[in-house]
Design a binder for these strands. Sequence first.
RNA 1: GGGCCCGUAGCUCAACGGUCAGAGCAGACCGCUCAUAACGGUUUGGUUGGGGGUUCGAAUCCCUCCGGGCCUACCA
Length: 578
Amino acid sequence: MARILITSALPYINGVKHLGNLVGSQLPSDAYARVMRQRGHEVLLICATDEHGTPAELAAAKAGLPVAEYCARMHEVQKALADGFALSFDHFGRSSSARNHALTQHMAGRLAEAGLIEERMERQVYSRADGRFLPDRYIEGTCPNCGYDKARGDQCENCTKQLDPTDLVNPRSAISGSTDLEVRETKHLYLRQSAMRERLRAWIDSKTDWPVLATSIARKWLDDGEGLQDRGITRDLDWGIPVRKGTEPWPGMEGKVFYVWFDAPIEYIAATAEWADATGQDDSAWLRWWREDKGAHDVRYVQFMAKDNIPFHTLSFPVTLMGANFDGAEPWKLVDYIKGFNWLTYQGGKFSTSQGRGVFMDQALEILPADCWRWWLLANAPESSDSDFTWEAFQNGVNKDLADVLGNFVSRVTKFCRSRFGEQVPAGGAWGEAERALVEELRRRLAAYEAHWDALEIRKAAAELRAMWVAGNEYLQRAEPWARFKTDPEAAAAAIRFALNLTRLYAIVSRPFIPQTSDRIFAALRLAPETERDWPRDVEAALRALPEGHAFETPPTLFAKITDEQRAELEARFAGAD
RNA sequence: GGGCCCGUAGCUCAACGGUCAGAGCAGACCGCUCAUAACGGUUUGGUUGGGGGUUCGAAUCCCUCCGGGCCUACCA
């Protein structure tokens, strides 16, 4: 038994996430956690909402709510959606929690002690009308290069030229449109990542099993231009974690908060502490996951994230943790494996929150049960490159894999049994060649399925699972219980008993992908998921698990098919504003 | 501009120096009738984006061209 710590990238607080966000971290982290739990490992799956930063403040203002209230509400919304998708987080925390305040301040204090924090005076644009400093991209103006009048302060979207806000002609606030801007001096803390460059490089070089996506992005940042740059870790905002040096004030930094990207990864740890608090455990419960000197030496830590998050998880966060252990007193657990995802696109283009293009988590659950989405998204996860969601592909995948292959298998077996033997596992007969052959095949496939999960090859795992479902249909065709029933009812009974056991096996091995359907199959078989879901160590024994005479209930249709009319309707409804 | 990734059957992808380049979907044909007209079998289909090179041998390595995507660090 291993101990596996799993974190999903934190969804940002400013709205409901779309399917691309879901498949990029939360959903695969859940499926992986489920597999590993079922296989008997000790797993802790942590996620949280990422609540700080300018966009949260602006979204709150737009909603007409105080930002704390807005975040509290949106947290509940996102939590409910996570539950709706059956995401099995051990804890879904909040980066604004008291635990994260304390821990983030603690880390900053340690980094200061380590000499890894530098104070720098810098000049930033302040908007008097908005009463706030503006991040570069919240300043708009005319591009000095191409004349585009909606160029942003960081880059012109029209000519792609990189800009400095002061380059813009007629700059204005992107928030209010106000031109009452001025450049003010302000002091900020910088994390001296550059000082850790070679240590980071050695660490990255040691990760030979990571996806190229992760290592190549990290190396690019290490070597780009003059090498890894120091990073500002504070901001002039109201909403956030106040800058403190541990528990002490930080002279000269009054009224400032830590940068959201500094405190967000620390929330992985703080959320684990929140979990301990919520479950009535003391500090040792979370420290044994995160501190190598307090029990985490044998933990394997796996992070899930989309590719845009990779620099922060391969560079900034490790610098924080390594730096906080400058004197060897706080050996924090570093990530062992990063599972990075590309983007999911929508009908060939980008998902767009602003244009309402694509499907969002709340809408998805209104349309179809979570398992349909879970299956399709995971089976088509953007692992090696971006992948595209189309309604046609979705309809095809759900109908073929779930309705026809798996759903119909359960249906044909239970209904045949009901009509010929009644709703209990039939007795009599014995296994023959067909049964033994399938046991062999499933042994092989189950081993491959496990190996794909170990390697975090999710699409391959899905394909292998599907092949196990197909094997059940092949078996029935070969065993022909409907024909045998007329000549040798005992043989038909043995075949159907075997097939009912297959159904149970499917409920177990399919559970990481389709947990709600797994529950429904267990319920139909009158079995408790809690006692049955353990991974089959012996396929043959697993296929003899249901005793003769065990009563079941023929389940209603597991998956309704998506009709062409439905698909057309959905396609039109989600086409977006453009 | 720089960097990274990718381009394999109609579609989605797998093979990552070595048996006739594989699988699912879609298509065609056959079979079955227990089942959500579902299932099973057989099968059509590729000069692996173009060109050049290395090698006994390349989808796989190198160069080049074409096409697509992503990143480029005070949005998160």
